[in-house]
Nucleic acid binder design. Structure first.
Lengths: 220, 220
DNA sequence: AGAAATGTATACTTGTCAGTAGGATTTCCA
DNA sequence: TGGAAATCCTACTGACAAGTATACATTTCT
């Protein structure tokens, strides 16, 4: 069998690329279907047979692309956090005052959360069904995220642009207010993602910014 | 067997009371144990055998006091919402301006949430494992709760005491910020329930109240 | 005391589902 | 076109846990 492997000519690069692209596509579709079902029914109430059925395949197909049911959950759960981290990193990367960074971050963050609504909801709800290794990894990411927000708020307080009684509690309040949107947002509802993002941003900046800045943001 | 029942003299009231009190106590202990385990391990990862073990009894004991595993979950899940509703009802019942009502409500609400931390967390996480009937009942309660908060905010906006860009979104932001505490609060951590309540209240009122009121609250 | 009712445990049934072994089918290349 | 390799399915196993039938123990009342 080793011989068999060696007998084959090395595959041409573009062929390999197509292979990989196909495999990626399949993985993505599996993730999508699983995300929908986990979101609608809950992780433990969803069987992999159901996921397979929705894709028109069977369970072993899934196992040939994904290690296990919990691996699937781990991957889905991390998606939302990744995007949230991107949002804060981009905001921090811009050159501007802490207040401007926050004004940039919040709408991006809300938008990111609402775009990955299902993964975020799953991430929050199914934490206890995660493999301990994944759970630890995600906890670390979350902590990193919280730290960055808190630092941003602190710097804004120092510079006088931001006014909150307690940066740590304020950071949690901010994240809570935004994360909570995953539970009440309905894509088919009256408010679009952009509208919610705008209103939530106005609401939150009203909370953090001192009046002068807050006015400036409103006028802009 | 009907005859047997009729042959018995009616039980004396105080006797019956003791019976009920004992049964109530047992139920409460079952609920407590189940709450701890559901919170720590998640609903589906907890077996009723584990709950029984923690109480030093066996599974049929539990079934003699509780209809089913999901009935247990339903009862646990509703506890937190009940208390939150009490908090808003008490605040509304006081005679005072909307701003004063809100200033009364928020700390009570935070305290209620943190005191029933585990049930709230379970309520949020295990929604999909609820019996559909319970789920509908709880959804109705939640909606009622949200409606009352939104009304309160609207009245405050009318009276000029409260300033938010959008009462509906602000109501969700408020509830999100507070509910989120269940996920990061550690009873053994550095901040007590009262401290968190105070800081969260200051943070939130900073968000809702116009400056003058906000100052007055701070000075008080 | 002893009959009746209540409460609790032992020991089972039953259904469900994650994960897999091995075979069928397609794809790809010489 | 033959045959190897990749891909996918049919059909199973093994474990686990909810819920229960039945028997035993304990209290309660006459």
């Amino acid at each position: 069998m080793l011989k068999g492997r060696l007998a084959v000519n090395p595959p041409k690069p573009e062929r390999k690329k197509i292979r990989e692209a196909v495999a990626d596509l399949k993985r993505r579709r599996i993730l999508e279907a699983a995300t929908d079902l986990f979101y609608d029914l809950g992780f433990t109430n969803t069987t992999l047979d159901q996921v397979a059925e929705q894709l028109g395949v069977t369970k072993p197909f899934i196992y040939s692309h994904v290690g296990s049911k919990s691996a699937l959950l781990g991957e889905i759960s991390s998606q939302g956090v990744q995007r949230a981290l991107e949002a804060i990193d981009q905001a921090i990367a811009m050159d501007g005052s802490p207040g401007e960074m926050l004004a940039r971050f919040v709408p991006d963050y809300v938008t990111a959360i609402l775009r990955s609504q299902k993964s975020i909801a799953i991430n929050i709800r199914e934490e206890k069904n995660l493999d301990p290794v994944d759970a630890a990894r995600l906890a670390a990411l979350r902590q990193q995220f919280m730290g960055k927000i808190e630092t941003l708020l602190s710097r804004g307080v120092e510079s006088g642009e931001i006014r909150v009684p307690d940066t740590r509690v304020a950071a949690f309040a901010l994240v809570g207010a935004v994360s909570w949107t995953t539970f009440w947002f309905h894509p088919a509802g009256p408010l679009s993602i952009d509208e919610i993002s705008a209103r939530m941003t106005a609401t939150i900046l009203n909370l953090t910014h001192t009046r002068t800045v807050s006015k400036a943001v409103e006028d802009a």
